[in-house]
Every structure is written in C-alpha cells, then in structure tokens.
C-alpha cells in the first residue's frame, strides 16, 4: 500500500488554516508572558541554580489563535454526526477504507480489491509444480532461537536493532584495538599488524594478574585487577587511557616577545589522548631488548610494556607527569588569548 499523502500538515504553516501556528508549549515567548510568569516559565540556563520550571501554567492564547476550524473540517465533523460522510480530509485515502464504509461499492469492486478487504479463507486451485525446495541437512538444524522475530518473507529472521557496532564491517574491531593496530602498522602491512595485535592480546591473557602500584593510580572506574587478564581488550584500554596525557603543549612562535615561543597548553580529545599514549608505549617498546628469537618478538616487547604501564613500572608514566607539570606551569600563558582581542 502506498503511504498516505496528507496535505493538511503541509498547509499548516499557511495562514488560511484556523489552527494555531505554534502548538502551545511550556516555553512561551517573552512577549506573551507577564513578568511574574516569565521568571517562572523561562527555561533554566546552565548557570542558574534555581529549580527547573514547572509545567502547570495553562497555555496562553494569543490574539489571533481562536479561529474556527477549516471549512472542510467542519463539513467532515457534520458528516460524521449525520452519518452521511463528509469530504475526505486527507489526500490519498486508501480505497480499502472507502470500500469498508461503502458496502454497495464493495459489491461492484474488482475481485482483487474484494480479496484485500475480505481475504478468502484458504488457498484455492492447484499447481502442477512444487513451490517448495529442500534445504540441506546442515542448515535445517540451525536457528531455533526464540528471541529472533521471524517476519514473513525473511528467511533467517531479522536481526535485533540497533545492530551492535561489531556487526558493521568497518567497525568490527574495538576502537582501541583498531587504533593500536593501525599505529603498529609499518609499510601499510595491516595483516601483519593484526597478527601482532593478536599476539599482544594473547600474551596479556596469559600474563599473571597485574599488581597495581598505588603511586600510579589507574582510571577511577577500573575493575579489580583479577578481572583484567581474561578481558585483554579492557586491559589494553585501561592501560592506554590511564597513561594518556590530557593536554599537549602548543608553541606559539614569537608570542612571548622578542621571537621567543610561548608555550600554551592545549586540551586533547579522547582519540588524540589515546594516540599519544600508544605512541609513547610503542616508542618505549622499541627501545626494549628482545630476549627470544623468531617472529613475534616485537609483540612480546609491546605486551611487556603494556604490562609495565599497568603495574606502574613504565617510563611512560614519567613522560606523562613531566608533560602535565609543564602544562601546569604554562597555564599562566593562557592569558595570551585574551591579550590578542
């Protein structure tokens, strides 16, 4: 059935309609409200500490908002009362609805329409050929999940919406894992990087439970360390987010006067913060020394570094602290932005 085309809402903004232009809301304009109502009804700003406005004031009616209904609406209302049927208010009323009201018309209607209004009780007629096919044994033993809604016409049921992010092809990996993998990559060899990532997670999974150093606190919402090794993605995310710097130092050339650069702290967003932390971890890992041979040595070193970050042994923490210290001292320079105006 095609969607109904209703022209009435389209015409609503036009002045020929009797409907009020704006639906009465809990947020009347200042012009309408008296001073006392205004203070009560104005939406609370972010800086106000008053309570939010209460929605008990009756909506105000403006000077030109109490019109009679449209002529067609009036005629339709009258038709409903008398039972004669007035004009169709909506364009594109389906024929089935009209036929339901009009019994004489239904008798003369073509068979297709009759069947749609009153569907026949069962299939009639026979076919000389089969319309069903046999499915392979392996497939028929499949899905009996009661949670899957089986819509008519969908072979395997429809999936639950919204789709989980990992079901989308381009986002099938965890965002942190994906970012880390991309930064591990050299010469565009993604599958090699993925192999390394897999090794890193596998090493984290088999490593002993990390002992957390209280001097290097992790993120406040961190789960207990015993939960971490079996969830290596969480382990990795926690290590990266804990050691990620909040800011970077931006040098404004010549801003300090006499050609001297002024150092200004600049906040980073989540992805930027993680990128910095991953870069630091990879740098520290590449300075480590391999103790084994064969492939997978770099993965071993990166995993060792991630574990060191988690246990507070890594030098990456010092880099973070030094950067934050510098950012705090250069905080005074932020008046630079005000000076320029």
């Amino acid at each position: 059935m095609p969607p109904r085309l209703s022209l009435l809402p389209l015409g609503r903004p036009l002045t020929i309609l009797s409907r009020p232009i704006a639906a009465p809301t809990a947020r009347p304009t200042i012009a309408l409200a008296s001073a006392s109502v205004r203070s009560q009804n104005l939406c609370r700003g972010f800086a106000d500490d008053k309570k939010a406005p209460v929605d008990d004031v009756p909506p105000k009616v403006g000077p030109n908002m109490d019109h009679l209904p449209h002529v067609s609406e009036e005629a339709a209302a009258l038709g409903r009362i008398t039972g004669e049927g007035g004009p169709e208010l909506e364009q594109g009323t389906p024929i089935q609805e009209i036929l339901e009201r009009d019994q004489d018309g239904l008798k003369k209607a073509p068979k297709v329409l009759k069947d749609q209004v009153e569907p026949p009780s069962g299939p009639k007629g026979t076919r000389s050929f089969s319309t069903s096919t046999r499915r392979s044994a392996a497939l028929t033993t499949a899905v009996e999940d009661p949670t899957v809604v089986n819509l008519e016409g969908s072979k395997f049921g429809i999936p639950e919406f919204p789709l989980p992010t990992e079901n989308l092809l381009k986002q099938r990996y965890d965002p942190v894992v994906k970012q880390f993998t991309n930064l591990l990559m050299w010469d565009g060899k993604l599958s090699k990087a993925q192999q390394d990532m897999s090794r890193i997670l596998s090493i984290i999974r088999t490593a002993p439970t990390p002992s957390i150093n209280p001097a290097r606190p992790l993120l406040p919402s961190a789960p207990p360390p015993s939960h971490l090794p079996l969830n290596p993605v969480l382990y990795l995310t926690l290590a990266i987010d804990s050691v990620a710097p909040l800011l970077r130092i931006k040098s404004m050339k010549g801003a300090a006067g006499g050609g001297v650069a002024l150092q200004l702290p600049n906040p980073l967003n989540l992805r930027q913060r993680r990128r910095k932390a991953i870069t630091w971890i990879l740098e520290a890992a590449s300075k480590r020394k391999s103790r084994g041979s064969g492939s997978g040595q770099f993965a071993q070193r990166v995993a060792d570094e991630v574990i060191a970050v988690m246990e507070g042994r890594s030098a990456v923490w010092d880099r973070r602290n030094a950067l934050h210290k510098l950012a705090i001292t250069s905080r005074a320079n932020l008046s630079f932005y005000n000076r320029r105006r």
Binding site: R205, T206, A207, P208, T209, L230, S290, G292, S293, G294
Partner: peptide, 18 residues
C-alpha cells in the same frame, strides 16, 4: 640457546583461565 628455548617453549596451562 635461551632464544631458541623461548621459541620452542610449550606452555600447557594458563592460570588466568577458569
């Protein structure tokens, strides 16, 4: 021989696994 031993090492248990 330490590097080769690390490469050929067979680990048969993971204490983290349930």
């Amino acid at each position: 021989g330490e590097r080769k031993a690390a490469r050929k090492r067979i680990v048969l248990s993971n204490t983290n696994a349930v």
